[in-house]
């Protein structure tokens, strides 16, 4: 298959291709199903005056992004073409995620760095963050379940990221230094103040520039709301701290759990049960530690209590 915009081949997954192949991200226009490199078609959309398919002139209502990552499955994400230019940002974000993932699995977390107290300000993100941390360790058997879960997290991250993009220009509102953020208090859409101004003057309604493009509610300027920042793989201090906390907690949990696993134990856990308990207990301990190894906590004791609790749930009431 060839992209008719750049006349270069579109590489998608097929049984004959080698495993190391890098696959293109494909943009499929709907309802006409014509496919292009997602970058090519989005670039055209930013030039075009309408949303007609370059091949058949059918007006596109939405676009599916088809990803083909190495060990992942083909995955479709529907994009509403009328909602600004978000796609480029998603792709960029995903590329960032996957490229680091290939080099070093742990580095997945490096992109999301808390700049404020996450537990107070952003409980959702905090939970997501912890899940990523735990999953990294659970990846020993690389089961399908883990991959699915990881995808789910990426999706939430993507969603979280998108809510911070200006709905007019599609750029990151938090990254744009010096430009005030505007937020619609009704639908939570974000805008650059300059984008709101220029759109309002374009449509000849400069008096109502402060209105949200999507729901027409009043937007308000927000300050200091940088809940998270996407950075390059540089903030190593923070990352090291997170990693070491994670490792220490893991050691406690495994030490306890090993007593109930293998020959000579009164309990016969399957590999899957072992992994599951490990994951649940670690997560719980991590949450208790507020992302930092606490000397005041007796981790062995806490881990044992929690492991026993999980074993009880599985029916081993006598241990």
């Amino acid at each position: 298959m060839e992209c008719s915009i750049c006349i270069e081949p579109i590489i998608i997954k097929s049984s004959t291709q080698e495993k190391d192949q890098i696959y293109d991200t494909v943009g499929e226009l709907l309802p006409c199903h014509h496919k292009f490199h997602s970058d090519c078609i989005r670039k055209w959309h930013s030039f075009a005056t309408d949303l007609k398919c370059p091949i058949c002139r059918t007006v596109s209502l939405s676009m599916s992004l088809i990803y083909n990552y190495k060990m992942w499955y083909e995955k479709r994400v529907d994009i509403d073409l009328n909602k600004g230019f978000l796609v480029g940002n998603i792709i960029e974000y995903d590329n960032m995620m996957t490229s680091t993932r290939e080099t070093e699995p742990d580095a997945l977390v490096a992109h999301v760095v808390m700049t404020e107290d996450i537990t107070n300000e952003s409980p959702v993100l905090s939970r997501m963050f912890q899940t990523i941390l735990n999953i990294d360790d659970m990846n020993d058997d690389d089961s399908e379940k883990d991959v699915e879960e990881e995808e789910g997290i990426l999706d939430s991250l993507r969603e979280e990221h998108n809510t911070l993009l200006c709905r007019i220009c599609g750029d990151d509102t938090v990254e744009n230094n010096g430009d005030a953020d505007h937020r619609c208090y009704n639908c939570n859409a974000r805008y650059h103040e300059s984008c709101l101004h220029s759109t309002a003057s374009e449509i000849g309604e400069s008096d109502t520039w402060q209105q949200c493009i999507e729901c027409r509610s009043l937007t308000q300027r927000i300050k200091g709301n940088r809940r998270f920042r996407i950075v390059n793989n540089t903030n190593t201090d923070e990352l090291d701290k997170i990693r070491s906390t994670k490792r220490k907690i893991q050691e406690h949990v495994r030490k306890i759990l090993k007593q109930y696993y293998g020959t000579g134990s009164s309990v016969h856990l399957t590999g899957e049960q072992f992994t599951k308990i490990n994951q649940t207990v670690s997560r719980s301990l991590y949450s208790m530690s507020r992302n930092e190894y606490q000397t005041k906590i007796d981790y062995d004791y806490q881990a044992k209590q929690k492991v026993l609790h999980e074993l009880h749930k599985l029916g081993y009431t006598s241990v």
Partner: peptide, 11 residues
């Protein structure tokens, strides 16, 4: 000519 203006397509 329309294709040199608004009806242009990148294909």
């Amino acid at each position: 000519l329309d294709i040199l203006k608004g009806e242009w397509s990148p294909v």
